[in-house]
Design a protein around this nucleic acid. Structure first.
Lengths: 268, 268
DNA sequence: ACCGATGGTTCGAATATTGAACCGATGCAA
DNA sequence: TTGCATCGGTTCAATATTCGAACCATCGGT
């Protein structure tokens, strides 16, 4: 691994849960020598990628990301475009919709939209991390990812989120062909209890799966009619999103056909 | 310079104007060897900090910044807090307000707010670059920055933006004591013609100047009354912003005194 | 066919990185 | 107070990584 990669990988230890990390902790987490971490963090700090805070001299992510994110968004308005699609999708379905991008072996949330139709909503946050095995979006991504990647993900210990979380690699693997066939994944309560989620993968210009767009509704509100609406609108929105981001679904991806019956319940 | 710094510095060549850069261009711009740039960009790409696009294999900033910016904003909601202050400030003044952060030897815009009171407004964009010598915000920052930094900035060639741009280092230096005295800078048409701009510096927890907050109005709309309103509200808003971001003005920074007369015109 | 440009690759020489040990400061328990 | 364990930070010789000139293959224009 190159030095630059080591420096960059240090940034991955910052999360919503742990936004400040001390030198020794960071050395422990990364397995690198304290002196190495010290030097690398110093370089990151010089460029504003991290900053040291207060007395404990702990590190946290720096302001440079705001600038670079704005530049990225100016060059490739992914978030803006996704948000436009999500807003429509939430209006049409009356439920929370969100888009997340594959980052390593997890998804991180890029954007979301609430419908303000009901008193209760599935909540969502930017940069929230979604696991591949326990979420609808994750399953959608797994189903359209290369086999070695799927193996790598499923061979690691799979965290139990709720009593409904499926953690048997083979059971998960068995879901994928159907998801591929329908172009849509579903997860009921696997990540958060009482959340019924549909998800469709999003592809880049090389037809690689880069993330997913999903609609999440409370289980208690799910009816055949809502399910049908979600499945129809989600498939359309995802297709538009892929196209508007400059991507193409792979040839194997099922075409949308208005006469198709909605995805059957055996998807779960 | 360490390897990590070299990799990170490559990111600085991406701008609003040049969002995609080829390998050879990047090597030229950075003065590094092509092989070096190739390897470093590969590492950056592995982490999603850049991505290669289409046929030309040019590089552009990657999606990782969206994630990290969201994390940063979650940990330190600078942008959100600044935006709240700017919104108030624009409402009170009826003009465009914005906040920018010092990044190296330039300012980059963090957030802005329009007032929707008039048909014409000074326009602003996120991540827009403001030079230190030609903008009100820049002068405010220079006035409260360490002398060696000021020297470094003013010893470089100073770009002429408009016929009103002051490019004589000594003339600029001569403005700084008054700005320090008033805690406020002013620039008329120095960056964009017909823009009349007031700016106040923002400080971090160590009383270092980290940026500025500014109100920009069309020259044609500037009256004594508007000037007075802007100066009063801007000073208050900047003070609140510094505090809300966890910072402190240096002891030398002038206190706000309601009985003070507004900044006199000799500031220009 | 040529030219000059591009992105990408190679390999010995040059140099930056590494990590154990060390430092002073701080905080906690006895 | 003493002692111990932690912290952030520093040193320096050993070494592993990076560097860069030169080299490809490819492309587009003349």
């Amino acid at each position: 691994m190159g030095t630059a990669s080591k420096a960059l990988s240090l940034l991955n230890y910052f999360s919503r849960a742990q936004s400040q990390i001390g030198l020794s902790d960071l050395a422990r987490l990364s397995g690198m020598n304290k002196a190495t971490v010290y030097r690398l963090m110093g370089e990151l700090a010089d460029h504003g990628f991290v900053e040291q805070v207060g007395a404990g001299r702990e590190y946290r992510l720096g302001p440079a990301f705001l600038r670079l994110a704005a530049l990225r968004e100016k060059a490739v308005p992914m978030r803006e475009l996704a948000l436009a699609e999500l807003t429509k999708l939430s209006e049409l379905t009356g439920e929370t919709s969100h888009m997340s991008l594959l980052n390593g072996e997890v998804l991180s949330n890029l954007a979301y939209s609430y419908a303000h139709k009901h008193g209760t909503m599935v909540m969502m946050e930017d940069a929230e991390v979604l696991e591949l095995h326990s979420t609808g979006s994750g399953l959608a991504v797994l189903a359209f990812s290369p086999a070695p990647f799927v193996d790598a993900v499923l061979n690691k210990p799979l965290v139990v989120r709720t009593p409904e979380t499926v953690t048997d690699p083979e059971a998960i693997r068995a879901l994928l062909p159907k998801i591929r066939e329908h172009g849509m994944a579903r997860s009921v309560g696997g990540y958060e209890q009482d959340v019924y989620s549909h998800a469709v993968p999003i592809f880049d210009a090389g037809s690689n799966c880069i993330g997913a767009i999903a609609v999440a509704a409370p289980v208690s509100r799910m009816t055949d009619e809502l399910r049908s609406t979600i499945q129809t609108e989600l498939a359309l929105a995802a297709r538009r999103t892929t196209r508007v981001l400059g991507g193409f679904p792979p040839d194997s991806f099922p075409k949308i056909n208005p006469t198709d019956s909605p995805v059957e319940s055996e998807l779960t």
